[in-house]
C-alpha cells in the first residue's frame, strides 16, 4: 500500500481526474473531499461492500427459475396493493 502524509487543505491526485482533499482532521476522524468525474463511483467502502454482497445474493439461480412459492407471494402482494 502506498502511504502518503498530508495536512488539512492538502490534496492527493489519483489518475488524471480524481483529487482527494483533506478538509479537516479532528480526533480520530478525517473529512475528505473528493473531486471525481460523474462516471467514477465514490462510496464508503463498507456501504459498497454491503450493496455488492446483497446483489450477489439476489441473483436467482438461472436453472432453478422462480420458486413456485413466490407465485403466491406475488399474488398476495398484488391483492394487498389493490385493497
Amino acid at each position: 500500500m502506498l502511504v502518503l502524509t498530508r495536512k488539512a487543505g492538502e490534496a492527493i491526485r489519483i489518475g488524471e481526474s480524481v483529487s482527494l482533499v483533506i478538509l479537516e482532521v479532528k480526533g480520530n476522524q478525517v473529512r475528505v473531499g473528493i473531486e471525481a468525474p460523474d462516471e467514477t463511483v465514490v462510496y464508503r467502502e463498507e456501504i459498497f461492500r454491503a450493496v455488492r454482497e446483497q446483489n450477489a445474493g439476489s441473483s436467482l439461480d438461472e436453472t432453478a427459475g422462480l420458486p413456485p412459492s413466490l407465485e403466491n407471494v406475488w399474488k398476495d402482494l398484488i391483492v394487498k396493493e389493490q385493497s
Binding site: S58, S59, L60, E62, L70, W74, L77, I78, E81
Partner: peptide
C-alpha cells in the same frame, strides 16, 4: 404483475425487480 425480471442478455444474472413505491 408488479415484479419484473432483469436478466443479463447472456442468461445471467437474473434479478427480480419491482417499483419501490409499490
Amino acid at each position: 404483475n408488479p415484479f419484473w425480471l432483469l436478466r443479463g442478455v447472456d442468461g445471467s444474472p437474473v434479478f427480480v425487480v419491482v417499483d419501490p413505491f409499490l
